[in-house]
């Protein structure tokens, strides 16, 4: 376990190798995006339409989504490993490749958690947002979300191995599709035209939107966690199988 912790710490420091100042523009963009988004919800919900969520729930959902963004939508270095030379590093070390990826990814979350999430969480009461989870099952749901996120990421990594030079495009499409289907931007239950019922059973809905709904008290926690468990049970074996079949097909030229 120690070697994974060391890898995570190395990854965390790796993010700040160029100086903490270089992280600030990205964090500032996060903060600047969050404020108008909160007001967008205020403007939208002022219409009085009945959507099954109160304004307070909506603001808590949006705020928590920004604070936990990296964990709600897992992206490992595997997304760009064919062109960035990550492949050689991973196979050159005496550790399982997937374990390294997981440790690196988790370590990479730390700077943003410390520099953005922590201060913003402290400022939440000033903005009228309550960050007290509505259900004690929220941490369990978050863990299942992270676990499923890794499985989905590995599946996309296998797709990028299959399609070789298209990893940038695949990553871009994944981010776009997941933003809509996972409910991290718009809660699934708010989707119009009857989409909410149909969408809540697809695998992306068990990612970010699931723990956020439980956090805000906008979903049945037991049913949501059962769905998350089911998708983890389905996608992890698939990811491992795809991984096993894909390793021989890797080609890397970058660095």
């Amino acid at each position: 376990m120690n070697k994974y912790i060391k890898t995570a710490i190395m990854s965390a420091f790796g993010r700040t190798n160029g100086g903490v100042a270089y992280l600030l523009p990205g964090l500032a963009i996060k903060a600047v995006t969050l404020v108008p988004l909160m007001y967008l919800w205020r403007a939208a919900m002022s219409s009085g339409a009945e959507v099954g969520m109160s304004l307070e729930q909506m603001l808590a959902y949006t705020y928590a989504s920004a604070l936990l963004a990296d964990m709600l939508f897992v992206r490992t270095a595997a997304s760009g490993w064919l062109s960035e030379g990550v492949l050689l590093k991973l196979y050159g070390r005496p550790m399982p490749v997937l374990g390294q990826l997981a440790a690196q990814t988790a370590g990479g979350w730390l700077p943003a958690l410390l520099l953005f999430s922590l201060p913003m969480a402290a400022a939440a009461p000033l903005l009228g947002v309550s960050l007290v989870p509505a259900s004690p099952l929220f941490p369990a749901s978050l863990l299942l979300c992270i676990s499923l996120g890794f499985a989905v990421d590995f599946l996309f990594a296998c797709l990028s191995i299959r399609l070789r030079s298209m990893n940038w495009l695949i990553d871009r499409m994944r981010v776009a599709v997941a933003a809509v289907l996972s409910g991290t931007v718009i809660p699934i239950r708010l989707l119009p035209f009857g989409l909410s019922e149909a969408m809540k059973y697809q695998p992306f809905a068990s990612l970010g939107g699931a723990p956020l709904s439980i956090f805000a008290g906008a979903a049945d926690a037991a049913e949501t966690i059962a769905l998350q468990l089911a998708w983890n049970a389905i996608l992890w074996p698939l990811a491992m199988l795809a991984w096993k079949k894909s390793q021989e097909g890797m080609v890397s030229y970058g660095g």
Binding site: A44, M173, V177, V180, L191
Partner: peptide
């Protein structure tokens, strides 16, 4: 990829507007 990416970006706000009958 270009079309899907853009559709995902702009559809979110349109779906909100449709759900709330405007913003």
């Amino acid at each position: 990829g270009d079309v899907v990416n853009n559709a995902a970006t702009v559809s979110g706000v349109f779906l909100i507007a449709s759900r709330f009958d405007g913003i």
